[in-house]
Design a binder for these strands. Structure first.
Lengths: 222, 222, 222, 222
DNA sequence: AATGAATGAGCTTTCATTCAT
DNA sequence: AATGAATGAAAGCTCATTCAT
């Protein structure tokens, strides 16, 4: 899943004059090219020919693997629906202690992906294209968000029951947990608003986690 | 602040409840129609003729007031840039006490607009169209976000100096403050993910503010 | 006829706050404006609104006097069909001596119009618009050219009979007489090819008439 | 010289009398269709779709080879700029005797093209479209007229120095030489004015050359 | 399997013409 | 008589999709 934007078409197209690319690589290369261009310029502004060129194939070849331009964006979402959601869900369900260690572990993973700028591309794409491709948002919402959300909520609920954190609406707590990171991404991605100091992600996570965990700590009796 | 997308028929000076119309209201009516359609279906999928029809005029009339389709989206952003940013900035600069009352007041305003679904439409539009219309994001970023952000940051800094809240990076604190609300909007708007219980906005603000303010409270000495 | 481009809209449109322009001036002012613009940019590239503006009236006013844009160009040709053709024809028919004095007199008239750049505008217009407005060329050809041509031919024939000039096809002689002037106009008008020295018209007429008259002189017996 | 509008199907290297077609001939076929229509109806009145239809392709195919409608007319002029100007110039520069034989040879070439109605089409087009496409006139003027003119002038000057013809302004002499032919073309093309007797071109050249050469003959001493 | 020339529906934009005021 | 806002047909151009090679 993480190779979503891994090997777009490593520079030299005719470097392997004999080793025909493993057949199955083609569709993925096309999707990689499409994802990049969709994120860069939006779905509507991206021409199928551009995708083909970027993927190092001909326009016609795209249609050998995908029946339409719309199918490309759907395939992109499909490809991104892989294990992650299940993994996260499983981890959440299996967890029982104070949320902090678990969430800090996930923070590390998210940070990694943000730096790689890979997996994040698909959600970004969906946000941009949601109005014109509502089915995407629906699919992604159903297959990713609705899959993970209940497990996170349940994890928070257990933590409240166990007294690890104070009692709050667990569904809204998810927004408090993810919102700041989400906003940070949007600000830097769309508006190019990046804090002046270099390691902004470090600072973001440090600050956010500090506030969040202090904010959900059980109230200390006087 | 509320005039960002105010109904162009307000403040009608000289009755004439049925005729009138021409010339004055037109541009605003067209922008209203455009905004609605752009948000509903995206800029690319919206045809100029649709906008005209929705505004109750002919295709040609749109070009009487706006030189191109692109100009429509720019005019929309321009129209939304009114006083709001200045007002918020001024309020922030004038403020000196504990952030809570100030932010709760703003929470109320934001809630109101979320329920009206008016002013929020333009930022939503920008988020969707950012890749294909980068100049929009730039303008909005420069004229709104960069205008308000420093004042909010300064307000947080003063509050830290005064010991009202604990010392944290104020720039990141802005993300912690706004992020959860922002994510809530995106989740409900794009993915249609709405908490089952009715008054989700109440719950959102209650939970978020509770966590946020508890999270930034000065550390109590042992 | 020579006022065709005389008074387009002498600068100040509201200089005569009381003396309403003689009603009948309007159509002529519109035609003047139209002729200028048609010659400058061609018929197709000229918008009715531009004509109206140049004439100092509103777009709608043009349609008060002319039923369509096509009608403008036809009216222009009509207006140019005035006396000149008849005058020239009459002069030709009345003439009986050696062609030289007569033609030199006409050369002076042509020179004058070339310098004024007025009457010449309509034939120029016809040349440019002939393919898209064939009826214009037809009318002009029938009402001007075919009217004058026979009289010139007859004049040449009489001159041959009288032994003033040598025997040549009189119809072709007309081309020899007018062609060089015509080409000079085209070269300077379309290609901007103007001889370096200043008084090119002087030189043109001097050279051309010298060659022409020497060329048609009766052959001297050895 | 004759390749200016040469049939694009010449020189077909590998038979295939029915298939073939694609890719190679297309641009020329489109230009041929465009030229015919531009000359027939003018640039503005000709729709790209008409050109496509006439060329036997679809509207889109035109844009496969030419980026815009304007580019078509420019390509037409470009295509016509081939060797002709150079050839004529070279012939003029190389020539030293009495102008008559040289010019009579060229008269033959011109006659031929007039009968073929091929190369002449482009200058005609330029004359008609000059006001709306001034760059065409500029290009043609620079690359054809200004290229040939100096050589013709120089040739006349040499002939004067050698006493072959009498001393006249050589620049104006060019107009005397070409003007009658030019006017003949315009008269027949635009106004449909054709002398009644059949072989008008024969008569034209005979008369014109007779007058011209008699007109420039050195003055005989008494 | 792969290509890329060709197609044509669909969109933006222009502007002659109309008509309420 | 005069205006200029409004109309909508018409045309240029794009690009997803097809298909002969």
């Amino acid at each position: 899943m993480t190779d979503a934007i891994q090997n777009p078409n490593d520079a030299d197209p005719k470097a392997a004059p004999k080793f025909r690319r493993r057949k199955d690589a083609r569709p993925d290369e096309i999707l990689d090219a499409a994802l990049r261009l969709f994120v860069e310029q939006g779905f509507a502004k991206t021409r199928v020919e551009d995708i083909a060129t970027r993927a190092g194939v001909s326009k016609g070849a795209v249609y050998l693997y995908f029946p339409s331009k719309d199918a490309l964006i759907e395939a992109l979402v499909d490809r991104a629906l892989g294990g992650m959601a299940d993994e996260i869900g499983a981890a959440m369900r299996a967890y029982n202690g104070h949320p902090r260690p678990l969430l800090e572990r996930f923070a590390g993973v998210v940070r990694h992906h943000l730096e790689q700028n890979d997996v994040i591309a698909v959600p970004k794409l969906i946000i941009h294209e949601a109005p014109s491709q509502p089915q995407l948002a629906r699919i992604y919402g159903e297959r990713v968000i609705n899959k993970v959300m209940p497990d996170v909520i349940a994890m928070f609920s257990r933590a409240m029951d166990a007294g690890h954190i104070r009692r709050l609406d667990p569904e809204m707590l998810v927004r408090s947990m993810l919102g700041p990171v989400f906003l940070h991404i949007i600000l830097s991605d769309i508006f190019g608003i990046v804090p002046e100091r270099g390691l902004s992600l470090d600072l973001l996570f440090e600050t956010h986690l500090s506030v969040f965990f202090a904010g959900i700590e059980p109230v200390k009796e006087a």
